[in-house]
Design a protein around this nucleic acid. Sequence first.
DNA 1: TTCCAGGAGAGAG
DNA 2: CTCTCTCATGGA
Length: 294
Amino acid sequence: MIQIQNVTDFSLKYTLESGQSFRWNRIDNAYYGVVEGRILKISQAGTTLCVESSANEDEIHFVSFLRHYLDIARDVPKILAEVDNDAYMHRALEKLWGMRILNQALWETVASFILSQNNNVPRIRGIIRRLSERFGEHLTLAGYVDYSFPNADALARATEDELLACGTGYRANYLRNTAQAVVSGELSLILVKQMSYPEAKQALMRQEGIGEKVADCICLFSLGHLTALPIDVWIKRIFETLYLRRRATHREIRQFAHNYFGAGVGYAQQYLFHYVHECSNWADAEHLSLIELK
DNA sequence: TTCCAGGAGAGAG
DNA sequence: CTCTCTCATGGA
């Protein structure tokens, strides 16, 4: 077990439970998840993180990897101060203080958010769990059993029926075709990692099944592009009711949000998104569900 | 039974 | 460009 000390302005709970990763399970006070081929067990006590791994880790590299994965290395409080522009945002920041945006493995993020379209989080988690059980590698850590996320090669070779059996629904061929594009090099993940945000988004959106929202999720939750703004039904609802107070197109929301929140708009989005899910009795909930927009 | 979920694509206007 | 319809699945 290794410890990471002096981790300030960080919440393991909100980071791992905010719908950006589908792979973490809380058992008692610890979180178990599969990250890049090994099981990790992470717990937080104050500003100390305790981490166990199913793999043989080189401590220096492992700590460096974790700091990047959990976005601890970034000056997030500075970013959050810059988006703290109003009472709504301020309450979200207070409630969820310490939530970070993960830097997750690119292929897993691409595949996961292809599966996320027109779907809900519990079901997305179930699909990914079944895909991993069926096509991933068996892993164990102190009695805890899980499976690695299947690589692109394994999903490229899967039949449509095998994917359907995991519950992918109509997204099966989106997933398989994208896996094949990654294997063939038609979609080079190595190159995508080196691209700017607009370039990466454009390259991802050439794949069938990856539209603007999914591409933005990949850019934000894997590539660290904090200007990415995934607009799902809830983010659209929030901006229409709380900020613009009228019906608005994605383009209008995007323009307003970038102008209003600036370069940290991706972080602002994540706090607003999770806040409405975390607080079903939110004082402003009636604005989101009852206001008639014309 | 109908509605909804971290949408995308095709088609019409 | 915007709007609308459909797509597979399961829980509420």
